[in-house]
Each structure stands twice: as structure tokens, then as C-alpha cells.
Design a protein around this nucleic acid. Structure first.
Lengths: 219, 219
DNA sequence: AAAAGGATTGGTACTCAGTACCGTACTAGC
DNA sequence: GCTAGTACGGTACTGAGTACCAATCCTTTT
């Protein structure tokens, strides 16, 4: 549809999504993609390391953007930094529109693509874990806590993204904000009964108890 | 070293670990493995779907064992069911000894194997998420909570396993128990300052405040 | 304008993973 | 002894991914 002179890389991506969508991933060879894009097979492998990689064309750039956003954060702005970095990814996929939906269908049906996606997600997760770990105190469990929060953020992000891809969510940004509130909410306890959470502190018990009472009454 | 008549499958696994360890993954062909095991190349692919799969020989059986353990649980025994299922995996890898260490080295240095491992872990995670979800109430966030807890358990497990593989932990079972306590502990807040967690409840504020005070004083 | 140099591309040839198919040996049960 | 099932080996093929070389284009320099 577009007049013509898109870059060879863009034409390859477009051709790949097209062919994978109509003919299937296994039934499409790299030769087919290159031919449809009007380039040589060599050129394909010059831009993408593998046949799967063409499905995630901006993966590296997204990784870099996330890393940049996380690097700009610090221990004080922790929660907002990770939330914004995750939103970055969410917005990207939402903005893709149809392409994201085609990818979702492909990933759901082709095991090797699902594997690839899971590995991509893990790269995001590692970035989050590293940033969180660098902001953490010398606590012996700091690394574990960082990994746990990183995995929670990624899980929340993916939960929302998948629901949006299935058409179960209208406002993904708001849904993600809600999911993050679930992540940051106290432990995975059953909320149907009264739960008392005790965090050791230097403050006198009376002062803490008073603060709790205020919190329960007010707000 | 063993006299001889191990099954073809076991000989293939042994030969693969051996060759991968000394010569490297990329530098070893499936032909090499088959020849070293004294079988044909066809036989290799009859037992393992791919060259990578031979590194995780008992993966399917482990998955089945986890599924069985989780199926035996119910909503009431939730915490112990998931903890035991995770321990199942931990014990398996600990019991492997040297083989687990070789796998760890290979995974750390060969990207395609790392990808494969991450995908395996995700399969465990999905089992946990499905079980947890099936035990959850009709809460609209129940699925999200199930996925979050599943990812937390898997993260905790892997944290401990990796530390053990690096020789940073002596008693992995105890370390895992501790990690699980961190997982189940209230929210990911900074513990260096006083944190007040409020969980909505039907009880009167006074009664809750009194319970908190008791908790802070006693124990 | 011409030459030089770098970057993008295409083509060829090769290795090897993975699949399909077929023939063969060994075992079990009648 | 015969047959059916199972485990195995061999051959042949497709296609992903790599290495290398030659051609073209575009920019810069003289």
C-alpha cells in the first residue's frame, strides 16, 4: 500500500509478518521472506540473527530504552522508575496494534516463538532486577527481594498485556496501574479475614499501634 | 567407568554431558554424541527432540511429578502444596550433583541453552499458576494474584538453586524455606523505616489496633 | 570531474540440526 | 517355527545459519 521506498529492514519485517500470518511460521522459509521483500537471503540474516528474531524487530531498542529509564532512577524514586519503565514496554506494544495481535497469535501457536518471547521477557526482568538490586541496602536478602519485585512487575505487565491482546481490557494503562497496586499491596494473604502484619521497627509499640489505628479510621 | 550395559538413552545423556563439558556445546555435533554413545544418530532424535533437550533429560518427568503434587493439594493446603512442589524440583537438582554444575556452566555460557532453561522454568511456573488459580476465589484479581505468587515461588526457587550451584549456600532446603518466608512476608516495602500495612476488615478498628499492639509486644 | 574508500547488498558454497522413510534385528507370545 | 511388536541403524532430504567473495552505490577527497 505504501508507495515503496521503505528500508530493506522494514520491508523484511512487513513481509515476514505477512507470510507468517497467512501461511504459517513453519511453512515460510527465510528465502520466501527475502524474496517477498525483494532482497537477498543474505540481507535477511544481516538484519536478524534468526528467523524468529524478525518477529521482535525492536526488541533491542526497547531493552536499551528500559535500561536508560532505569538508569535515570534512584533508590528514592524506585517505585515510579520501575512503573514508568514497565509502562514504556506496555505503550510500545499497544501502539503496535495489529502487529502485536499477529505476534500474539503466532506465539500462541508456534512453540519456538513462545520460547523466544519468554526469553525476551526474561531480559526485561533481568534489567529490572539489576536496577532494583543496585538501589537496595546491604540487606542479605536484598538480591532476592529485587528479583522477586522484578518478576512481579514483569508478571503484572504481561498479565495486562495479554488481557488487552485478548480484548478483555479497554484501558491497559489503567489496568496496569491497578495491577501494580496489587503487586505493591501487602503479602499474598487471604483478604477475607483479618490479617495483622508486623514489621519490626525501632519505634515504640505504642506509637505504631496509634499509627495503625489512625490508618484504619482515616483515609 | 560403569561396567557397560546402561540404556541407550542414559549413554546418550552421559556422552552429551561429557562432550559438551570438555569440547563445548557448539563444537559438538549430534553425530559426535551418538557415536560416543555407540548408537546411531537416528536414535538420538528418537529420545530427544533436539540437541539442547539432552541437557534436561528428566524435564518431562519432573513436570509430571510437580503436576501430580499440585493436583493433590487444595485451597486449604495451598502454601504447603506449592512449597512442597517447589522443594521437589530443588531436591532433584541438588541430587544431581556434578551434572547440575556442568549444566549450570553450560547454561551460563551458551545462549541457546539459557533460553531453553528459561522456557523450562516457565513451564513450572505455569503449573503453579494454574493450580493456584484453580484454588482461588472468584475475585477479579484472582488470576493475577495466582500468577504473581507462581512467579515469586519460581523466582525464590531459582535464587536458592543458583546460589547453591555457585557454592554460596550450604543447606539449600533451609535457604529455600527462608526465601519462601520472604515471599510470603508482607509487601515489598523498605523495612528500614516503620511501615504500616492496612488490610480492610470487618472487625472494628479498636479490635484490630489492639491485636497489632499485642503482636508488636509479644512474640 | 575523477579517484578512492566505506558501506550495503547479492550470490555461492558449506555445515549441521531436524524429519521422513525404510529396512533390519531382536524379543515375546502363540 | 511363525508372527507381531519394538528398538535400532542408514539414507536422503529440507532448511537454518555461517563464511566468504564480488559487485554496486554513495560519500568524501583531491
Amino acid at each position: 500500500m505504501s508507495p515503496a521506498p521503505a528500508s530493506a529492514r522494514d520491508r523484511l519485517v512487513a513481509a515476514a509478518f505477512d507470510l507468517f500470518d497467512v501461511r504459517g511460521f513453519d511453512e515460510t522459509t527465510v528465502d520466501d521472506i527475502a524474496r517477498a521483500a525483494g532482497v537477498g537471503r543474505t540481507t535477511f540474516f544481516r538484519y536478524f540473527g534468526s528467523k524468529e528474531a524478525v518477529i521482535f524487530p525492536e526488541h533491542d531498542e526497547l531493552l536499551a530504552r528500559i535500561a536508560a529509564r532505569l538508569d535515570a532512577g534512584d533508590a528514592d524514586s524506585r517505585d515510579s522508575a520501575v512503573a514508568e519503565a514497565a509502562r514504556l514496554v506496555l505503550r510500545y506494544y499497544i501502539g503496535e496494534g495489529d502487529r502485536a495481535r499477529i505476534r500474539y497469535r503466532l506465539i500462541s501457536s508456534v512453540p519456538v516463538l513462545k520460547t523466544r518471547e519468554i526469553a525476551s521477557i526474561r531480559q526485561y526482568q533481568s534489567l529490572f532486577a539489576r536496577a532494583l538490586s543496585s538501589w537496595a541496602p546491604g540487606d542479605p536478602d536484598a538480591v532476592l527481594r529485587a528479583e522477586l519485585l522484578a518478576s512481579a512487575i514483569v508478571t503484572a505487565h504481561n498479565h495486562v498485556l495479554r488481557r488487552w491482546l485478548r480484548g478483555e481490557v479497554d484501558d491497559p494503562e489503567q489496568a496496569f496501574a491497578h495491577a501494580m497496586s496489587v503487586v505493591l499491596e501487602p503479602g499474598p494473604h487471604d483478604t477475607s479475614e483479618t490479617t495483622v502484619v508486623v514489621v519490626r521497627t525501632g519505634s515504640a509499640p505504642d506509637r505504631v499501634a496509634a499509627a495503625v489505628e489512625r490508618a484504619l479510621r482515616g483515609r
